[in-house]
Design a protein around this nucleic acid. Structure first.
Lengths: 306, 306
DNA sequence: ATTGATCATAAGGTCATCTTATCGAAGCGA
DNA sequence: TCGCTTCGATAAGATGACCTTATGATCAAT
C-alpha cells in the first residue's frame, strides 16, 4: 500500500502553488533539498510524475492537476479538524446527555434548562428521566454524560457534587390544615402513600419512618409525586414531597403541606459523572449553574420554616 | 499551528474502531506503546481528549465522535489519491492536448481520432489546428502536450518522431491531364498558387521550386488547400498538395494530379513533444497509432507512382 | 491478597528527514 | 563562445521522530 504523509501533501501543495522549488521551500520553512526529496518520494510512491520539470519552468502534469485539487481539499479538511478541536476545547459544545430522577426532573428542569441555554449557548442538552439505578447503569457505560439525583451514590468511579439539601415535607388532606404535625409513631399508623419500588424517594420516606423497605402494607404505590398528591387530596392517605415539588404539586390539590419538627427528613440533591469524563471540568461548571437554578427555585416556592 | 500527521489519524481511526489499544495496535502492525504515544500526542496537539479512558472501557468523547467521522472521510480521500495514481499510471488517461498544422489536420484527424478512441479509450483528445510556429509556442509553454507537423522542427527541447514521408503532387486544371509533368523551369513560369505566409507547406513548395520566400509575385494566397484546389479547378493556376490530401481535395474539383519526376518533393510528417513531458512514454505509443493511421490513409488514396 | 488485563511510561536503537555544501544543466549576456 | 547566474538534484552528516522491549500503575475479578 502507498504510504503518503500529510507533510508530503503540504509540500506538494506549496510547490504546486509556487511553481518553484526554492520559493515553495521557503513557504514551508524548510530547505530546498528537503522539499525536492519529499516531492521525489511522493512521486515515487505514487509511481507517477506530478510535475514536469523543464529547465526554465515547472509545470503540473495532467495528473498533478487533478491530484492538486484533491490534495487541497484534503488539507482543508485537516485544517478543519484543528478548528473543530479549538472550538470545542474552550466551551462545552455539542450534545450533553444528562439523566435526572423523576422526583427532581419536573421541578428543576425548567429552570435548569433555561439557565443552561443562557450560560452555555450551543449546548445541546438531552434529558433522560429514570430511576437512580438505571441512571447509574447508563452513566457507567457512556450512554449519559452526567446525572442529577439524590446523594449519596457511592460509586467510586463517579465524581459526586452536592448541589443542595432540601427538606421533605408532609402532605395531608386539606382539612388537616392546622392539626399538629404527627410524630413518627402517629405517622407510621397513618396510611402512607409511596412511589413505586425503585424510586429512591420511596426509600428515603420509609427510612425516615423507620419502616423496613420490604414491609409495606398495601399496593397503593403511585408512579409520580403528582399522583400521590392527588390521592392525598382525595383523602386516601398522606405522603411526602420534597420542597422543590411543593409549589408545582400542591397548587391544584386540596391538600396542606406541613414541615416536620427537627430533625426534619432531608434529601441531598447532587450531580454525578464519571471521574474519567473529559467533560469533568465543564460538568463542574454546569453543576454550579444547576445548583443556582435550584436554590432560587426552592427559596421562591417553599413554605416558611415552621 | 497544529501539526497532525496521517499516521496519527490512521492510528486514531483504528483505535476508534477497535476501542482497545492492544487490538488497534495489532491492526496497525505496531506495538501498543507506539499507538498509545501517537494517540497521546494527537490529543495533546488538539488540546482536547478524544477518548475517555476508564479502567475497563475505552470510549470516544463527544468531540472524538465528530472527529472520527471527519477523519474517516479524510482517510478515504487519501486512499483515493492512491487509486487515482494507480489508475493513471498505466494507461494514459484524461485530457491530451494535441496540435496539428492545417495541411495535415483535415486529412489525418478522422482516422487518427477514430483509432485513438479504440486503442486509448478514456483518452480525452483536444485538437488545436494552427501553424507550426504557434504550435511550437504553445507546446513550449505547456498549452499543448504534443503536435503533429512537418519535420524537422529543430528545437532541442522537443522530442521528434518521424511518422512517414509523403510526396507532394502537382495539381493542374483537369484539361492538363495527360500533359507531361513540367520541369522546374516550366513550373516557375506557371502561376503557382500558395498558402498564406506562415504555413510551412508554402515554404516547402517554394523551396522545391527554388524560389526565394520573399519573391512571390502576386497576392493569390489561399487560406487552405481546399481553396487552392478549387482555384486550380477554375483554371487560375497550379498548386501542390501532399499525397494525403489528394483523395479529399480532388474529388469534387475538375483538376488532375500529377507526380513529379524523381527527385520528387516530399515532406516528412512527425510528432513532437517536450522532452521533459511525463507523457513521453505514452506519446511514443500514440505516435505509433498515428503513424499507422496515416499510412493506411496514404496507401488507400494516393495515385500510383509514375 | 493475588492475579490478570490494560494502558502509560521509560530507555534505547533505528530510520526518516533535515541541513549545509556541492554538482550539473541550461539560459543569458558580453 | 565563454563565463555567470539560476535552479533543481545529489551527497554527507546531524538530528530527531518513532518504534521496540521492558516495566510500572491501576483496577477489577478471583
Amino acid at each position: 500500500m502507498i504510504n503518503l504523509t500529510l507533510k508530503q501533501l503540504r509540500y506538494f501543495d506549496a510547490l504546486a502553488r509556487h511553481g518553484h522549488f526554492g520559493r515553495a521551500a521557503d513557504a514551508c520553512a524548510i530547505s530546498q533539498p528537503a522539499l525536492s526529496m519529499q516531492i521525489k518520494e511522493l512521486e515515487e510512491s505514487l509511481g507517477t510524475a506530478l510535475f514536469e520539470r523543464s529547465a526554465r519552468q515547472l509545470r503540473l502534469t495532467n495528473f498533478g492537476e487533478e491530484f492538486a485539487s484533491r490534495v487541497r481539499h484534503i488539507l482543508r479538511s485537516v485544517e478543519e479538524l484543528g478548528d473543530l478541536a479549538r472550538a470545542s476545547r474552550d466551551r462545552l459544545v455539542g450534545r450533553l446527555r444528562i439523566g435526572v430522577i423523576p422526583t427532581i426532573a419536573p421541578y428543576m428542569l425548567p429552570a435548569v434548562l433555561g439557565n443552561l441555554a443562557r450560560t452555555h449557548a450551543g449546548l445541546d442538552v438531552h434529558v433522560r428521566e429514570t430511576t437512580t439505578s438505571r441512571l447509574i447503569e447508563e452513566l457507567s457505560d457512556g450512554r449519559l454524560d452526567a446525572a442529577i439525583l439524590a446523594l449519596p451514590v457511592s460509586e467510586s468511579s463517579f465524581a459526586e457534587v452536592p448541589l443542595f439539601t432540601e427538606d421533605l415535607l408532609l402532605v395531608r388532606p386539606g382539612e388537616d390544615a392546622g392539626r399538629p404535625v404527627p410524630s413518627l409513631e402517629e405517622l407510621r399508623a397513618m396510611r402512607l402513600l409511596l412511589l413505586e419500588e425503585g424510586h429512591c424517594f420511596r426509600d428515603q420516606a420509609l427510612s425516615f419512618c423507620n419502616i423496613q423497605p420490604g414491609l409495606t402494607r398495601d399496593g397503593l404505590d403511585g408512579s409520580s409525586l403528582a399522583t400521590l398528591v392527588q390521592m392525598v387530596g382525595a383523602g386516601i392517605g398522606v405522603t411526602f414531597i420534597p420542597e422543590m415539588a411543593v409549589a408545582v404539586e400542591t397548587r391544584s390539590a386540596s391538600v396542606c403541606v406541613a414541615r416536620f419538627a427537627t430533625p426534619q427528613p432531608t434529601r441531598t440533591v447532587g450531580m454525578i459523572w464519571r471521574k474519567t469524563s473529559p467533560l469533568a471540568k465543564q460538568l463542574l461548571e454546569i453543576s454550579e449553574v444547576v445548583g443556582r437554578s435550584a436554590c432560587v427555585l426552592r427559596e421562591e416556592h417553599a413554605p416558611a420554616s415552621s
